[in-house]
């Protein structure tokens, strides 16, 4: 019971904080919407997408990039959670969390669940707006995509936790965008199927193949059409578990996460 109360408290706090930060909510929606409504509009003429699973017919480019943009929302949300962990640590509220009488791994899981919950809100809001703009998605997809979003959210949230346990200062966070977010996003099938990448460069194709974010996007893509992509599911689960273990290790007091301040 105390464990569940803590979970409720942490998730509730993150959602409240998210709803209070209107700019963050807006930013989380505007970013993928610009890609969807502007980038895709310009690109649809230049890029024809052949029929690839799970699609059974030719689809407009806007429809193709929806799963990638859902992944992007979760990627940015994971980084945002990570940023807020570093901020919390600098501002002291991390101390409050870590001194509560619960195992540290559980507190991290709660943080992770809270981040995933916030990302789900963002994803559904995005899907709603996309639908209003005429993007056609299968009706049951709204629900069948949920497990994939949860799993992908856990993987990217765990990545955020690992980063936050290694990044000591808020100022160093800008590098994360260049060295983590952009490579993960562009080396993935979020914006173009990987066969297109293979036509340009075999090396790049293989880099994309091992990118876990790409597997997350494909997992979401299939789930949106009521299908399970088992290889992607396996990859995302495995990477999520490894990252979670690294995060727990990173926040172990024996390894001295808080070793930064004397006095």
């Amino acid at each position: 019971m105390p464990w569940l109360l803590a979970l409720r408290g942490i998730v509730g706090r993150e959602i409240l904080r998210f709803l209070h930060q209107r700019e963050r909510f807006l930013g989380a929606l505007v970013r993928p919407l610009i890609w969807l409504l502007v980038f895709a509009a310009g690109f649809r003429a230049a890029l024809g997408v052949a029929i690839v699973p799970p699609y059974q017919t030719y689809i407009p480019y806007e429809v193709y990039i929806v799963p990638g943009l859902l992944g992007m929302i979760q990627l940015f949300n994971g980084m945002q959670s990570s940023l807020s962990m570093v901020y919390d640590r600098e501002m002291g509220s991390m101390r409050l969390l870590l001194t509560s009488p619960l195992p540290r791994w559980w507190l991290l899981v709660c943080k992770l669940v809270a981040g995933v919950a916030v990302s789900l809100l963002q994803c559904w809001a995005f899907l709603l707006i996309a639908t209003l703009f005429g993007i056609e998605l299968p009706g049951p997809g709204w629900l069948t995509v949920l497990p994939a979003l949860i799993l992908n959210g856990i993987m990217l949230g765990a990545l955020g936790l690992v980063l936050s346990s290694t990044i000591r200062q808020l100022e160093n966070f800008a590098g994360v965008m260049n060295f983590v977010v952009f490579p993960l996003f562009f080396c993935s099938p979020a914006l173009y199927p990987l066969y297109k990448m293979r036509e340009s460069s075999e090396t790049l194709y293989w880099i994309c193949e091992i990118n876990p974010f790409g597997h997350g996007v494909e997992l979401i893509r299939h789930a949106l059409y009521g299908q399970v992509s088992w290889p992607d599911l396996g990859m995302v689960t495995a990477v999520a578990l490894v990252l979670l273990a690294l995060a727990v290790r990173g926040y172990d007091p024996r390894r001295g996460l808080m070793k930064r301040k004397g006095g």
Binding site: M1, L5, A6, G9, I10, G12, R13, L16, S100, P101
Partner: peptide, 12 residues
């Protein structure tokens, strides 16, 4: 809300 968050962390 701040107090409620803390209470939940302590399982009250």
């Amino acid at each position: 809300q701040n107090l409620r968050y803390f209470s939940r962390l302590h399982g009250l």
